[in-house]
Every structure is written in structure tokens, then in C-alpha cells.
Design a binder for these strands. Structure first.
Lengths: 222, 222
DNA sequence: TCCTTCGATATTGGATCAAGTTACGATGTG
DNA sequence: CACATCGTAACTTGATCCAATATCGAAGGA
């Protein structure tokens, strides 16, 4: 059962998803042999994938002990959102100045799609479309380094979202409306309005998280 | 000759330094076997170290081809500096608000040390003290996530500096004075002044880089 | 002469093997 | 009964081996 393509990449994606979807709980150890067995590969690609996740701050490695899924403190979460906010505001400012009509159309379409997809039972769908919009804005900034960091920070906060808001207390209107507001600001090339809209949106996100202080111990265990 | 401690960590540091000190030229391939041989270890820790460097954006890996030291374009350099500027300004704003007297003392001492160490022949010394000051400011911001990213961005630009400014056209006064200006602004808790000083300082840095368009082909070859 | 194809070589990627380290529990003693 | 010590088991880390893939050069045909 030799896998043809780069299996390290596949393992990386699968692990990331497993953490994101909470199949692997926070704080639990990533044991190389069992993961390798479960995924039907050797330990080598598993090791590489864990190294990558470590570099991204998703797992925490202790020498001679192993790798553990991070258990972010509320302080770390706030700090991450603070940095993410700054990065995305920077992206919005840049994008507002140079965005084209076709790009505006694209963003508007994303918001519309989001409205369609939105469904309190389809959390995965929401998560994907949301990430897509934020990334597009970063992409349109024209700064590929910035894009890279926005993506990394977005990935981190996506995990927080699922870890600490297990019941996804998301309402339709706030999120989609907030996105529409951002896109509208970009459409009229107003960096100030766009920045304000982003700040408001992300502040609401982090506030929503803080509400859920404790986690049910075995919620959605593997 | 079995190495006692975590040899992956050592390999990582050595490789990073080798790139930083230009023992390994930009664009050249990192061949696992030769590096392993040279460092007296197996391929395994070399592989891990390369993976880490890849995640940090220092090397560029092509599947089934190998890992190469990045050859940043001038555009990428500008983009990196742009992001770094934003992050350091954020740090400065935060720090200006909460910096303590003893921390101010510490920063002032760093600038003094820098003045002592500064010597056109001691580039390594300059590089270290410079990095130290920037990192301290990020540390004092109290945001550990921000610190992490500032450190990563600083590492990137340090490489650019050595790659593209091989003759280190640094004068004493501009750099140390710029640092003093930043510290003074922080000392009077002025976020605005601190931010302005950082922007000016980093803009000068990137401008200094741009002057050197081409590299002597075999400057300081291994 | 130029293009294509085939093969040799170098290098990465994956699997397995060996060793070192840590944690945990059992057992013996005060 | 409590505590220290020793032994064992589980896991990571490093080394080696094998397979797969890409590159480069040479040979042969159009």
C-alpha cells in the first residue's frame, strides 16, 4: 500500500484537519507510532508533519517526551487575535487602495455565497467561506509575505474557534453583515472604513469566544 | 561519536548560522547526505532541521528535488520589510504604554553597548546587538505571539542584510542614533514618536539594501 | 544537425532498526 | 502505612536501508 504522491503533505493535512475537527483533542499527545499505524504510513512522514505543525504553533513539542496539541490560554488567544487584527487591517488598507472592479465583484460574490451556505448545522461550510473571504482580502493586498502570515494567524484562530466555541454560537446576521460591511468599505476604496469594519468584526469574534470559559470534558471525543 | 543532547536542535542552529554567515550561499542546494557527513550526524536530524528552516521561509523545498536557500527578489524584501515595519510599530505602541523605568534603563544600556561594540570590522557584533534591541522592544510589549512574529521577520531581514549588503555599508551614527531616538520616544511613553522613529529607521535600512543591486558572484565563497 | 529517447547517477522520500530517555508502578524497607 | 528505590514498559530520537524520482548525458534516428 505504497502511497504515490508526497505522503508527508497528506499526513500534514490530515493531522491539521483532525486537530481542527477536534478528532484529536487539545492537550493530547501525538504518538508517532499510533498515528503512523492509523494512517497506514511509516513514522517518517508523521514526524515531518508534526515538525511542521510545531513550527506553525499548533503543537507543542517537549524534548524526549513528545508532541502535544496546544492548549491555548485565553491570554494567548487574545494576543493572537490582537496580532491578527493588525495584520488584517494592514491588508485591508493596502487592498482598499488598489482593489479592482472585478476583485470587488469577486468579494461580493463570496459574501452572497456565504449567505447561501450559511446554516447552523453546516459549520464546516461557514468556516471555509469565512476563511476564504479573509484570505482573498489579504491576497488582493499584493503583499505575499503578508498573505502568508494572515493565513497562519487565521489557521490558529480557526482552531481556537472550534476549541472554545464548541456549540458555534454564530448567528447569521452578525457575521455575514460584518463581511458585507468590510467589502463595501473596500469597494469605495476607503481604507479607514475597511480597517474599522475589520476591527469591529474581529473584536466581536474574540468576544464571542471569551463567553465560553470552560469546555465539556469529553465533548465529541474521538 | 554519538552526540548526547538533541542533535536536531544543534543542526538547526548550525545550518541557520551557516546561511546567515553566508557559508552556504543563496540559491545553493542543501544536500542532506553531505551536510550529515560534514556535521557528523545522520540524515534524520538534518532533514528535521531543514523542515524547520522551510517553515520559517529560509529555504525553499521542491518535492523530489531538494531544499534550496531562498533567493529573495527585491520585491519580496520590500514586502517583508513592510510587514516587519507594521509589526514593530505595533510592538512599539504597546510597549510605549506600559514600559517600566527598569526596562527603559535596560534599553538605554543596550544602545550604549551598541556604541561600544560598533566597529566597521565587527559586523557580527553589530548584527547581534541590533537584533537584541529590536527583540527587547517586542518582548516588552507583553504580547508573546507578536514577539514570535517579530523575531521571525527579523531573522528573515537579517539574512537579506547579509545577502544584499555584503560590504555592510553601515555608518555608526545613523544606526545607533536611530536606536537612541526610538528608546527616547519609548522613555517618554510616546507611542506616536516611537512609531515614527521605527518607521524612519526601518525605511533607512531597506533603502540601504536597495542600493546594492547585484552581488559579486563568489564573494566569500565557502 | 537537431530532436527524441533511453539509461546511469545523484538525491530525496519512506520504512525499519537500534539506542537513549522518561514515566510509572511494584516492591521492599523504615 | 508511607516513602524511596529499582525495574520495566512506552515513546522519542538517531541511524541505516531500500525504493522512487528527477536530472543529465549519450546514443540513435529523422
Amino acid at each position: 500500500m505504497t502511497v504515490r504522491g508526497n505522503s508527508e503533505e497528506e499526513v500534514y493535512i490530515k493531522l491539521k484537519n483532525a486537530i481542527r475537527k477536534r478528532y484529536i483533542k487539545q492537550g493530547s499527545q501525538l504518538v508517532e507510532v499510533s498515528l503512523a499505524q492509523q494512517l497506514g504510513v511509516s513514522r517518517t512522514p508523521v514526524r515531518s508533519a508534526i515538525k511542521r505543525l510545531e513550527a506553525e504553533g499548533m503543537v507543542n513539542s517537549i524534548p524526549n517526551r513528545g508532541a502535544f496539541v496546544v492548549t491555548p490560554t485565553s491570554r494567548e488567544i487574545e494576543e493572537t487575535y490582537q496580532v491578527r487584527m493588525e495584520m488584517e487591517c494592514m491588508a485591508a488598507r493596502l487592498t482598499a487602495a488598489i482593489i479592482t472592479d472585478s476583485q470587488i465583484k469577486e468579494l461580493n460574490q463570496l459574501v452572497i455565497d456565504e449567505g447561501q451556505v450559511f446554516d447552523r448545522t453546516n459549520l464546516e461550510g461557514y468556516d471555509v467561506t469565512n476563511a476564504c473571504l479573509h484570505l482573498k482580502i489579504a491576497e488582493f493586498s499584493g503583499n505575499s509575505i503578508l498573505y502568508h502570515y494572515v493565513k497562519e494567524l487565521l489557521d490558529r484562530t480557526r482552531i481556537y474557534l472550534i476549541l472554545f466555541d464548541p456549540f458555534f454560537k454564530l448567528e447569521y446576521s452578525p457575521t455575514v453583515d460584518a463581511h458585507q460591511k468590510i467589502v463595501n468599505a473596500l469597494a469605495e476604496h476607503s481604507a479607514q472604513k475597511a480597517e474599522a469594519a475589520i476591527r469591529e468584526h474581529l473584536q466581536n469574534s474574540v468576544d464571542g469566544l471569551e463567553k465560553v470559559e470552560t469546555m465539556p470534558e469529553d465533548y465529541l471525543a474521538l
